[in-house]
Design a protein around this nucleic acid. Sequence first.
DNA 1: GTCAATGGATTGTCCGGACAATCGGACTAC
DNA 2: GTAGTCCGATTGTCCGGACAATCCATTGAC
Lengths: 245, 245
Amino acid sequence: MSLQLSVDRSSPVPLYFQLSQQLEAAIECGTLTPGSLLGNEIDLAARLGLSRPTVRQAIQSLVDKGLLVRRRGVGTQVVHSQVKRPLELSSLYDDLEAAGQCPATRVLGNTLVPASAEVAAALDVPEGSEVHRVERLRLAHGEPMAYLCNYLPTGLLDLETERLEATGLYRLMRAAGITLHSARQSVGARAATPAEGERFGESEGAPLLTMQRTTFDDTGRAVEFGTHTYRASRYSFEFQLLVRP
Amino acid sequence: MSLQLSVDRSSPVPLYFQLSQQLEAAIECGTLTPGSLLGNEIDLAARLGLSRPTVRQAIQSLVDKGLLVRRRGVGTQVVHSQVKRPLELSSLYDDLEAAGQCPATRVLGNTLVPASAEVAAALDVPEGSEVHRVERLRLAHGEPMAYLCNYLPTGLLDLETERLEATGLYRLMRAAGITLHSARQSVGARAATPAEGERFGESEGAPLLTMQRTTFDDTGRAVEFGTHTYRASRYSFEFQLLVRP
DNA sequence: GTCAATGGATTGTCCGGACAATCGGACTAC
DNA sequence: GTAGTCCGATTGTCCGGACAATCCATTGAC
């Protein structure tokens, strides 16, 4: 039952990473069934011609992803799963596209404004200093889905209205070399104002889903602050939380 | 400016963990300021009388937590922060208690029921098999905040109504030796039905925040499935998402 | 039959070293 | 002055080994 594992020492990709990828693929495609033991680390290392620390590093990365569980004195098992997917910093645009919803964006505003107290606090810039403000209406199949208002520090990337119409904000940021790391979110709900009702084609008082989010890059700097409003009848958040003990 | 670091080799707590805790404390209390270098790993190891792998393990755990950033050829820096807090699988009870809201619970039902198709799929048990169903009303300062309906597999823990009134479900699960690992959540909003309006002391049509959650333990088994309804005027979700690149 | 002691298996922790990859600044050439 | 090159510093990867801690099943005692 020992699955096919091998490493290419001439490849520039790290050995532990080659191994973890092969193991992940085996789990994904069902070759390694949930609950099955992985075989002890020593033998595995010997079979592959690797050292134990390297094998452990590969296994550890999958444990961190939640795909494997280690039990001292027992061995390493594949989790009973359903959990497979890693949690992602969800992008509304990508979500809609993945769901085949034909997302589109109408840019309502793209200007420089002085930072309000709230925005300044979120982005950690002086109050009153200039920041980008982008207001967008996100459509799916031509129907309005959400109203997005985002603030960004200046100098990080150039926000062309044309590009904002074509894709999502996160893709633009990644393309600009910003590595997104984490985000603090606050999700709530409230009734639509008359203006919002009209904007979304719903009646006044219709339930709306609201989100405020501050996104940080890998150095811990705030790179985006946004206030979003979604039609509750058309959208809900799906996400996964991990516990770090 | 080298800060005070030391390890106790006679302690049963792992050396790398002692070090990571001291570093985390130094970051938390501001001794290590955001953006400052940590000093190279070799010297750090020599100063502490540890090996480099041990020091690396300590640093790596903080990198995983998002407190440090490594840059090859540069060094290891403290992140520019605000992010400090680790993401937690939020417990409504703990959230309220931490906010000084005097949480209380009224158990409306605590019975065994046959699993519906939805519940069976979420918990990965046969449809129609018996599962626990717990219905609760969560109060803060005597005011109703949320209606919680949870399903749990049988045999995991004994759910005494008395205990459920005194604390949160997650605490009971942890106390029963279940190590929570991750959860899939879906958050939405809708208008209150007449019955819900009455239950919460709000009018019909008032916006409600809804959440469905399936929680998994460290072996990947589903240990809880719940449908919750919150008064949007009184509660919103705060959480943090991480990106795994 | 029940409970406690023993032992094998496996992961957890730690060491010391070696070389490669990458970054940033200093230096040089033009 | 500007661009390209070199070099030191630092982290990234990998090795091989040693012992401790823990789990599980078997064995043994009562």
